[in-house]
Nucleic acid binder design. Structure first.
Length: 639
RNA sequence: GCCAGCGUAGCUCAGUUGGCAGAGCUACUGAUUUGUAAUCAGUUGGCCGGGGGUUCGAGUCCCUCCGCUGGCUCCA
């Protein structure tokens, strides 16, 4: 007899050996049907695994996140089986679970999305067949023999220890796999193939390119639909589509990966930077600006020529080689060095909206998210070592204040010393200690990415979460122990001796282009008033009311607001429709009633109209809303 | 850069087995003077992404270049 302990602490006795299904059935048959795997002494295994001695067991059901991973892994196998039925010459390689689904890589003829219907139909058959999924432990020798004609699988097996190798078989399909898997294929009811792509074997561009087929799966068709709806919502918010529709920016073949900003896009840009400058001045920053073309010698001194050359654009001027800056720091170094500094000057917080160019691979360019030219809201902070903690804390507080203005949540990740790095143990301890000290003082939870820091110092990355739950890394705080050395930076201490300052690079928006794109998607183009390129459009009901509309427009203009009059001789319906499509937050109609009463009819994007709003009161309220950089328009709704 | 898909009017798209380039919106002109999501009529608008080839004939087939889209980190 063996004792099995459940998560609630209860213990049951069973005849040894017993498998998971039998144990689950002893609780209830209904429960057992929802069990997809189990955790035995903290190892995830199949329901069919035999238990031979006392153990702690936790069942994984269709409701657990581990269960979803198991399902998706099995879905990958079902897809592989379907692909092999349809393309007998395809060689399966690997098929892992990823964040929102799964993929499987095959060495096979190219497939396209048009083939999905066929593959999905075959998958449905396999699901309907409810094939039992059977695990088998095999020797390395047998595994290699089984895959004698499949070099990819053989390569994987070669790297495994004998005695730890397992196969999973469902119907006629057997795959090398660690597992665990669902008891049978019938669980894979709600799935969808999403896209195909080329992917290099083991991510190495020198090795063969495989066909990667992505899909996703859920236990429940409703969950699948929810996910597909989310993809659709993201598609609707696509900043490239909205950017064109709202006339914010465009791209042209003559400058791939470099955005052209339109007047409305610049209104948005300037609103973002006005706010940025206000916060940075308040936080004790000074603003600087450095050239974008600098001599090769500077890049050699900074180390970029050696380490970042392939991403840099170069240019020959008067027979001197120069590079267009991919980063602002070397220029910032020159500014720091232009005179001697006392410890009394520190910290120096030198910000720069720096235009940088980076030669990204043509295939990775994507709207404003991945470009070849962009502006960083950079800053270099020079300080004494004992200021690290308070300076980092200051940045974290600045970041929190600024992101919350946009209604963006965020989380922090600390990256520590990588294997290849410069600097002494003591320097790293001091630097990393400063960062963790600041994080503790800041008081929020953070993740640690061990060994993920830059070679020149540890960093904190700030990941924001947008309105539909996607995360983006924007802000970063990087401590740099390399550049102060390379540029021999110093300040004079209390002791009248030269000392090496500590330097950090940091950004809040990151790339202003990219941040703007994220905001377009976050707000779905419906910007809060303070950001909206056109804050209000005034619609005269007929031509005779145009002068009155112009008069009101002038009052908005004098109050510092961005408004315009739609004086075309079009129907009111059409003007309203177009203003709605332009996502202008306030649509103000004026007719005879408004002229005689000195009021406005205020329509908001939800379609609601409030009549008889007094003009002066309204303008004041709009100004208040903009000055407060409110996310909503509550103060206007109560007028 | 590599793989796959795509590129037709300013925008959204149609265009059959290769046989005279189309629609709606936009813009422009005229009429209409409009009370909260498209008033009506007319007129413009095209090197079918660029170049080369096959063919009596190419938007359509082939080659090549450019650009765009999805991927190329997640490890049996």
């Amino acid at each position: 007899m063996i004792n099995i302990t459940f998560p609630d602490g209860k213990t049951e006795q069973f005849e040894s050996p017993v498998d998971g299904s039998a144990v689950a059935s002893s609780i209830s048959e209904g429960f057992a049907r929802n069990c997809v795997a189990m955790e035995v002494n903290s190892a995830l295994v199949d329901m069919s695994a035999q238990i031979r001695e006392d153990a702690k067991i936790r069942f994984i059901t269709t409701g657990d996140s581990e269960g979803l991973d198991v399902l998706r892994h099995t879905a990958a196998h079902v897809m592989a089986q379907a692909v092999l039925r349809l393309y007998p010459d395809a060689q399966p390689t690997i098929g892992p679970v990823v964040a929102d689904g799964f993929y499987y890589d095959f060495d096979m003829e190219p497939v396209s999305e048009e083939d999905f219907a066929k593959i999905e139909a075959e998958m449905k058959k396999i699901v309907k067949e409810k094939l039992p999924i059977v695990r088998e432990e095999v020797s390395k020798e047998r595994a290699l023999e089984f895959y004698r004609d499949q070099p990819y699988k053989r390569e994987l097996i070669e790297e495994l220890e004998d005695g730890t190798i397992s196969f999973y078989t469902q119907g006629g399909f057997t795959d090398l796999c660690r597992g665990p898997h669902l008891p049978h294929t019938g669980f894979v009811r709600a799935f969808k193939l999403l896209r195909v792509s080329g992917a290099y074997w083991r991510g190495d561009s020198n090795r063969p390119q495989l066909q990667r087929i992505y899909g996703t799966a859920f236990f429940d068709k409703k969950e699948l639909k929810k996910y597909l709806d989310f993809l659709e919502e993201a598609r609707k918010r696509d900043h490239r589509k909205l950017g064109a529709a709202l006339d914010l920016f465009s791209f042209h073949d003559e400058a791939p990966g470099m955005a052209f900003f339109h007047p409305r896009g610049m209104d948005l840009w300037n609103a973002l930077l006005d706010y940025w400058r206000k916060e940075h001045r308040a936080a004790g920053y000074v603003e600087t600006k450095t050239p974008i073309i600098l001599h090769r010698s500077l890049w050699e001194q900074s180390g970029h020529w050696e380490n970042y050359r392939e991403n840099m654009y170069t240019v020959l001027i008067d027979e001197t080689e120069s590079a267009i800056k991919p980063m602002n720091c070397p220029g910032g170094m020159l500014l720091f060095k232009r005179r001697r500094h006392s410890y009394r000057d520190l910290p120096i917080r030198a910000a720069e909206i720096g235009l940088v160019h980076r030669h990204e691979l043509s295939g990775v360019l994507s709207g404003l998210f991945r470009v070849r030219a962009f502006h960083q809201d950079d800053a270099h902070i020079f300080m004494t070592p004992d200021m690290i903690e308070s300076e980092i804390l200051g940045i974290l507080q600045l970041v929190r204040r600024m992101y919350s203005t946009f209604g963006l949540g965020f989380h922090l990740e600390l990256s520590t010393r990588p294997e290849k790095s410069i600097g002494t143990d003591e320097q790293w301890e001091n630097a990393t200690g400063g960062l963790t000290g600041a994080l503790e003082a800041y008081g929020a939870d953070y993740l640690i990415n061990e060994g993920d820091g830059a070679f020149y110092g540890p960093k904190i990355d700030i990941h924001i979460k947008d309105a539909i739950g996607r995360t983006w890394q924007c802000g970063t705080i990087q401590l740099d122990m390399s550049l102060p050395e390379r540029f021999d930076l110093s300040y004079v201490g209390k002791d009248n001796e030269k000392h090496r300052p500590v330097m950090i690079h940091r950004v809040v928006y990151g790339s202003i282009e990219r941040f703007l794109g994220i905001l377009v998607e976050h707000f779905a183009g419906r910007f809060p008033l303070w950001l909206a390129p056109v804050q209000a459009v005034i619609l005269p009901i007929n031509d005779s009311l145009v002068p009155f509309a112009e008069e009101i427009n002038a009052r908005f203009f004098n109050a510092g607001l961005r408004t315009c009059v739609d004086d075309r001789t079009e129907s009111l319906n059409k003007k309203v429709r177009e203003a709605q499509l332009d996502k202008v937050p306030l649509i103000l109609t004026v007719g005879e009633k408004e002229r005689s009463a000195g009021t406005l009819a205020v329509r908001t994007l939800d379609g609601a109209v409030r009549h008889g709003v007094a003009i002066d009161t309204f303008i004041n309220a709009v100004c208040d809303n903009v000055a407060a950089r409110s996310l909503g328009m509550e103060n206007l709704m109560s007028l």
